[in-house]
């Protein structure tokens, strides 16, 4: 049978192409243009070549912020992914409990980032916040405005509270797509609970987990609003992540050229990590299917 090819369908993609061009490609090209110039004002600018890239690549504050960012993103993934899978496995499969759990789990996802930061800023305070007050009452010296460890933990717990639900919902959707026949076959074979998880549930959740990990990695690697509202990057620079450092440079100091070079390096890091992760997981998936 001959396959009919109709290239007119490409016209249907045009609106998306224009939206992506305006929202992503043209701004990215503009950032590339900025990154090679010293911009004093909109009319006065000088070509400086790769000078800003060299300055950014040898900036020790950037290296520190990058290490903090990598540590933060890894911590987020190491906590949220297993926790999300664990919670998804314990959710009910039928009855009124399903709707109740879905609504409860979706609630944190509906709260805007700056409101989440404000909620945790108040919650963590020892004088008026329930969390801070309780921790101090049981003898833990907790003050996220003075202790780097406390600030880090607060930002981390806040992110876990805000985004674990996303992983839970994705995993739950993956689990619901597994036909009952798989479980019945496993039961007949006398498979253990771990074997069911390892050889049935985990492979079936793989595609949603790829999306979940990518979303959480990119989002945590770009985190800005919550730490900005909660700690303002402090104490010291303890919670100053890459985006906050970048914003300070671009908007605070109006160093457009170096900030543009920084943005491109930031973009290349995210692009590389996401591509490597996506390739590794998809290749593993193809090997698994074979």
């Amino acid at each position: 049978m001959n396959k009919i090819t109709n290239n007119k369908a490409w016209f249907l993609v045009l609106p998306v192409f224009f939206i992506v061009a305006i929202s992503a490609i043209i701004p990215l090209m503009t950032v590339v243009n900025y990154s090679v110039q010293d911009i004093l004002d909109p009319q006065t600018r000088y070509f400086v070549g790769t000078e800003w890239f060299k300055r950014i690549l040898t900036d020790y504050r950037l290296h520190e912020a990058l290490l903090r960012q990598i540590g933060y993103s890894l911590s987020v993934l190491l906590i949220e992914i297993p926790l999300g899978i664990g919670i998804a496995l314990t959710l009910p499969r039928k009855g009124w409990g399903v709707s109740a759990c879905m609504v409860l789990l979706a609630l944190p996802l509906l709260i805007p980032w700056n409101v989440v930061g404000t909620i945790w800023q108040i919650f963590g305070r020892a004088d008026i916040g329930l969390g801070g007050y309780f921790l101090n009452k049981i003898g833990i010296d907790y003050n996220y405005t003075q202790s780097s460890v406390a600030a880090w933990l607060t930002v981390l717990v806040m992110d876990v509270w805000h985004w674990t639900s996303l992983i839970v919902l994705l995993c739950y959707a993956g689990l619901r797509s597994i036909p009952d026949a798989y479980y019945q076959a496993a039961k007949i074979d006398g498979a253990s609970r771990w074997a069911v998880f390892r050889f049935i549930q985990l492979p079936k959740m793989q595609s949603v987990l790829v999306i979940g990990v990518l979303l959480r990695f990119m989002d945590s690697f770009m985190i800005y609003t919550e730490p900005f509202v909660l700690t303002g990057g402090g104490p010291g620079n303890a919670t100053t992540f890459l985006s906050q450092y970048l914003t300070r440079m671009a908007v605070g100091q109006f160093d457009i050229g170096p900030a543009a070079a920084f943005s491109l390096i930031y973009f290349l890091i995210i692009l590389l990590v996401c591509w490597v992760f996506y390739t590794v997981v998809m290749n593993a998936g193809q090997r698994g299917e074979q």
Partner: peptide, 9 residues
Amino acid sequence: SWMAWTPVT
């Protein structure tokens, strides 16, 4: 001009 083009880019 707002895109600040240069010959190199």
